[in-house]
Design a protein around this nucleic acid. Structure first.
Ligand SMILES: [Mg+2]
Length: 331
DNA sequence: AATTGTTTATACGTAG
DNA sequence: CTACGTATAAACAATT
């Protein structure tokens, strides 16, 4: 038996099939791609793409950052991170063993995440995870899949003499690289349906990242404080109704209040909110560029792990990339 | 025992 | 091409 066997049937399935039985027991209001509440039975017919969630264009690192930053306390337990992600992105309702392992790995491996000892004697396992004070805004460039440089804890291990960086002299042969796309996954015969317009249309033509604050689906204190051991809705609402209305957005332009001293991590996820419950290639309001002479990491083109179920069509905007691409069109 | 956390190894795609 | 950032798997150790 495989190490991890996929959930028999993604809890998701049921949810989408009508029974609003969230994994939290309570009837969590279903959200559409834009975070709008979907009344039971009100779902548009074509909406039922239950198991066709494409992988959100965010690295685990960025997801974790978002989760942590939206938390009032700016710190979350592992499980809370899981929940936040799972809640927001239906895609992560599948293969949990897999991505959760990756999440753990990311937390440990990356210096930008630091472990914060748990409160005095709060019941529960594991400590909190927070962002390293100096990690800053790691995604300001708008590339959520790959940072230009990964934050390294300034601490130079061992002798501070530092001197030359004792780089990982790991040169060594990179070995064979063939295999590769040996067998090109024959797409589900059926030609991938043309990408839904919304998938390509920059929702907000607004140029780069205006750093509007756009609060995340805050788990509101309710969750935070009484984070139910298990079995209760941790994240009451993903979106503030008023926020969904794109009409009135920026409540506060500043991500941090004057009162908030030191370490603030402006994530500038700006329009990201629109991606809540990212359920397929909903319009990624951001930073795709078709700039020909610049190859940028395009998650849709390079998704390693299957982004969708076999047989399901996958919408993959092609020829686009993630990063803002220095388009100084102005010039 | 299960969850949480650390670590090693491999693979992939892009940046330079 | 190599270097780097990331994804994934897996083998543990630590904790509850
Ligand atoms: Mg760490």
């Amino acid at each position: 038996m495989p190490p991890y066997q996929a959930e028999p049937l993604p809890e998701e399935a049921r949810v989408h099939l009508g029974a609003p039985v969230s994994e939290f027991g309570a009837s969590l209001p279903e959200r559409d791609a834009f975070g709008a509440e979907v009344a039971p039975g009100t779902r548009p017919l074509g909406y039922c793409r239950s198991l066709n969630h494409t992988k959100p264009p965010y690295s685990y690192i960025s997801l974790i950052c978002m989760a942590i930053q939206q938390a009032p306390a700016k710190k979350l337990t592992l499980n809370e991170i899981y929940q936040w992600i799972r809640q927001l992105f239906p895609y992560y309702r599948q293969n949990q063993q897999r991505w959760q392992n990756s999440i753990r790995h990311s937390l440990s491996f990356n210096d930008c995440f630091v472990r914060v000892p748990r409160s005095p004697d709060t019941p529960g396992k594991g400590s909190y995870w927070a962002l390293h004070p100096d990690s800053g805004n790691m995604f300001e460039n708008g590339c959520y899949m790959r940072r230009q440089k990964r934050f390294r804890c300034p601490k130079t291990p061992a002798s501070p003499s530092a001197d030359k960086g004792q780089k990982e002299a790991k040169s060594g042969r990179e070995e064979e690289r063939r295999k590769r796309t040996a067998e090109v996954k024959m797409a589900p015969s059926t030609t991938p349906p043309s990408v839904p317009p919304c998938a390509l249309l920059p929702r907000s033509p607004s140029p780069p990242p205006p750093l509007q604050r756009l609060p995340f689906p805050s788990a509101s204190k309710e969750l935070q404080t009484h984070l139910p051991l298990q079995g209760v809705a941790p994240i009451p609402h993903l979106l503030n109704p008023d926020l969904q209305t794109h009409t009135s957005l920026p409540p506060q332009p500043e991500p941090c209040m004057p009162g908030e001293p030191l370490t603030h991590h402006p994530f500038s996820i700006s329009q990201l909110v629109d991606l809540q419950s990212y359920d397929g290639p909903v319009g990624y309001s951001g930073y795709y560029s078709s700039n020909p002479h610049s190859h940028h990491y395009n998650p849709y083109l390079t998704a390693r792990e299957e982004s969708v179920y076999p047989g399901d069509s996958v919408y993959c905007p092609v020829g686009l990339s993630m990063c803002p691409v220095p388009i100084m069109s102005s010039s």
